[in-house]
Nucleic acid binder design. Structure first.
Length: 213
DNA sequence: TTGCAGATCATCT
DNA sequence: GATGATCTGCAAG
């Protein structure tokens, strides 16, 4: 019989102004923030420990490279503070936070969280039991654990009663250990592949991959 | 611990 | 028809 954890909703949600910054700044800012996803009475989420910035039309690794605008990526062109959720490899969803400005297709991919809220629910969704460090370590795993799918594409990150919310916890994690590394899985992107646009909380056991592997 | 192959399908060319 | 902002299990070292 699992012990229910307290549901923490005591945090300051980020506002549209917080999201209206370039992706590399938001990627840094999100490290240490709390991400929560509600599903009726259920809540799941945790502390963001790994992000990647996708800068826009000049970023070869971005879905919006060269101004590409399709049915899939149109959320990227929306106002800051939307979710851009896409489906890939035939089985995985990935969650991004749209930032910058309307018609500027920049976004931050959430790659890993330290799960803190709704652990039992996340284990169920992931068909666990799994070691906690594998529960939300990777963009696909994270979406599965949080129950995120294409129905969340274009949804707004709102206040603590919204389905999606992200914000500063009342006791903010020390993110002075946030460091930059290169992004994962974008080897095809030429010189953009070697740009340090991935942020991780150094030494965190919850990362999808260590910075030096 | 590391590396590879297979799964599986929306999206784009 | 090819590909991918991935994950998993298994085999090899």
């Amino acid at each position: 019989m699992p012990t229910p954890e307290p549901v923490r909703t005591d945090f300051r949600p980020l506002t549209q102004a917080d999201f209206a910054v370039p992706a590399h700044l938001l990627a840094r800012r999100l490290i240490g923030c709390l991400l929560l996803v509600r599903d009726g009475p259920d809540v799941a989420g945790g502390i963001i420990v790994e992000t990647e910035a996708y800068l826009g039309i000049h970023d070869r690794a971005s879905h919006a490279f060269a101004g590409r605008r399709t049915a899939r990526n149109q959320s990227m062109y929306g106002p800051p503070g939307l979710a851009y959720v896409y489906f890939t490899y035939g089985m995985h969803h990935c969650l991004n936070v749209v930032c910058a400005d309307v018609n500027v297709p920049a976004a931050v991919l959430i790659r890993a969280i330290q799960p803190t809220v709704g652990l039992h629910l996340m284990q169920t969704r992931r068909q666990g039991p799994l070691p906690e460090r594998r529960l939300c370590a990777g963009p696909g795993r994270l979406c599965q654990a949080l129950g995120i799918s294409l129905v969340d594409d274009g949804r707004r990150f709102g206040g603590s009663r919204s389905r999606l919310s992200v914000g500063m916890p009342d006791v903010k994690m020390d993110n002075s250990r946030a460091i930059r590394t290169t992004r994962i899985g974008v080897d095809y992107a030429g010189s953009w592949a070697s740009r340090p646009l991935r942020w991780v909380l150094a030494g965190s056991p919850w990362l999808s991959r260590s910075p030096h592997s």
